[in-house]
Amino acid sequence: MKLRVKYTKTGALRFIGHLDVMRFFQKAIRRAKLDIAYTKGFSPHQIISFAAPMPLGMTSEGEYFDAEFVSFTTAEDMKMRLNAVMPPEIQVISIVKLPDDAKPSMALVTATDYIVTVPFAVSDAIKELLQKPEICVTKKTKSSEATVDIKPMIFELALYDPSVHGSNVVGVTEAVYMKLASGSSRNLKPELVIGALADTAGITLELYSCRIHRLETYLGEEDALRPMYETGEDF
């Protein structure tokens, strides 16, 4: 039976890399004594796959993995058992049961949204940026540089408002909410949007002066985005 687990990654653990988070959960599931399924063969490993790897330094309350279980109890019980053996910085938010024919989540992610705290007044820059017909930025890869129009990959961009966008990022003077294309076909990093906002405002940003917090990971087309947990059902 396949389950989808939504979890947080916060605080100091934002400096733990994606592969290490995977290894962490492999051990945590064993400590919690959950009946996860293993592959056959000489060196069996857990049947588990993680969605949307997150870069170092970012926090999140919308991370996911899917895992195959031989048997299971209730979502509440499993969540409790996992959370009891994990640090407060990584905690399970919810667990849902996936339909038997559910495809691997990794390939299906289309969007993610973020709250980014910034060290400058950003409200005017947002308005100005949204009015532009195209937003051209330089995208660097390991081997080349290219100018790309990122506007089609920005699904939403607004001044952060806790009553609208949820979560509760405290002690924030200025923060931006953004929902961006994410996944294997097209992918936009929040840093590029922040860079464009700073340019618009005429500000030179110091490195690492923004805090990026991921809220949710989505599946589906741009006009019908659904949070990943909606694919499954409660149990």
Binding site: L13, F15, I16, G17, F24, L56, M86, P87
Partner: peptide, 10 residues
């Protein structure tokens, strides 16, 4: 490897 310096291990 900043994880060398942050503590918070299980």
């Amino acid at each position: 490897k900043p994880a060398r310096y942050i503590g918070h291990e299980v």
